[in-house]
Nucleic acid binder design. Sequence first.
RNA 1: GCGCCCGUAGCUCAGCUGGAUAGAGUAUCGGCCUCCGAAGCCGAGGGUCGUGGGUUCGAAUCCCGCCGGGCGCGCCA
Length: 583
Amino acid sequence: MNIFTHIRNNIIKALDNLVEQGKIPAGLTTDRVVAEPPRDAAHGDAATNAAMVLASQAGMKPRQFAEILAEELKTLPIVENVEIAGPGFVNLRLSGAFWDSCLREILEQGTRFGSSDMGKGQKKNVEFVSANPTGPMHVGHSRGAVFGDALASLLEKAGYDVTREYYINDAGAQVDVLARSAYLRYEEALGKDIGAIPEGLYPGEYLIPVGKELAEKDGDKWLDKPESEWLAYFRKFAIDKMMDMIRDDLAALGIKFDVFSSERTLVEGGKIDEVIEFLRGKGLIYEGVLEPPKGKLPDDWEPRPQTLFKATEFGDDVDRALKKSNGFQTYFASDMAYHLDKYRRGFADMINVWGADHAGYVKRLQAAVKALTDGKAKLDVRLCQMVNLVCNGEPIKMSKRAGRFVTLRDMVDAVGKDVMRFIMLTRKNDAHLDFDVEKVKEQSKDNPVFYVNYAFARARSVRRRATEMFSGRDLSLQALSKADFSLLTDEAEVSLIRLLADFPRQIEIAAAAHEPHRIAYYLGDVAAAFHGLWNKGKDNTELRFLEQDKEALSMARLGLVEAAAVVIQSGLDVFGVIPAEEM
RNA sequence: GCGCCCGUAGCUCAGCUGGAUAGAGUAUCGGCCUCCGAAGCCGAGGGUCGUGGGUUCGAAUCCCGCCGGGCGCGCCA
């Protein structure tokens, strides 16, 4: 439970009471009233802006309104003290019993703690990766993959019904190139000297086994046959192989999709024509000629009539082509069909994760979704910036053309899935990220995942000691939840409890903003608070977690330690990272 | 030319979608291991939040104009 929604509910109730008592006028708009943690803990546990937001509506001064509200809030059982500060903040100090109950809740819920019902089971579709099925995943895909997966987990934790979806671009010219490249490897497998891979075909060695497999399966059946006979067959076979490979790569990163959607299926099912007719019915299609593109003009540009969609009516800069001048469908047209398909499958709330190089495409797709669903569907596009791969400060060069790119698999093998996932999530998605493949392997401060994990490992270490010291005693989370937490009175202990209790709210904030990185920062704070408390116990033996002759106190402190471990584990779980028990 | 993103401590970045005295990490300097794991902790210095206006009780945050950086801009996928 997010304690600040709980507090806000109490404030709203208090306002209702004041209306009943005739102390403030009825009918105030309370939308903007919030309860939140004050920036400075010295101001209390929670602050509300109610007086400042409502005073003018009520025809009072903020301070005056605050006085009245404060009197009413003092009667709440969870409130220990109320103060008015600054322009009219009402600061609440919550009772010790309230914080004890928060700690108890963490231990009772275990790693379920942090879950929220904010999403109310509402369906959300997160489409990510969607790499072309023409080769293995390279490192450039990894950020979007990790981000999308973590965002999906985050939304699940916040109470949404999330579908992870992969859109296979298996309809364009690039998959014909794939088919031809595979055919070449097929010839090679049958003993033909293919020489150098011609320009325009995929040179990667990953197609060698594909050619070999076809040769073993079909023999020389396709040899010296015209392309028209084998192209479709080779294409399907190769695409399936590539998707198997991609699925394996993703699995190595701990990612599993719920749905794979195929562009080709949409095309062959006539869905593109259907969507164009659908829009034509709405009067949003016309034949016309587009303005020449701005900036550097392509050499062969000339005005041509095409089938256009009135994207400008929905916020786009120009109208967009759905059919080329030769009558073929554009990629945008199939994307429209795809998003209409998603909507019809029940997703009125869609998130797409793209590389930042697709930024120019966002507006037109949002315009499309608006038009297709009469504004009933939401589409948020999250852009992931590039990851600069660095090795001890030196940039690593990648070249896909030469077929020697660093694959995602190489990277997972080199640094490990968990490190990779965590690092990718320690930055806002739209900020560039330097990833040093050597430094992240160091077990030091250069490696943010270790800092958090170290706190967890220390917590486990305390538990191991406790089982020795208090052998025979039930030290399960359930048992510890019954400890006497009123014994935890040190400032560092109390502030750690507050921080841990804030986890559900952090999940809600991060989920609402579609920003998983916030959880990484929060976990850093939790780890810091825990390390701080630990070291306080080193300096002052009175504050050590475990003391043989003070069992009740030890149980309360062990409960706090375990609660910290629970929150760290639960937070890392959103990232798909499993913390090590020992380091 | 247009659109999107960005500009916060020497460096790398947070900043809870408008709150109180702008924070971490790193680097520099100074402390803490007879004591639950020093991969850690405590402390110090370091800021015109690019800039100029506007909105209001209140702006790093929202709006507009500049300056600087990045990306994108065909019927490609």
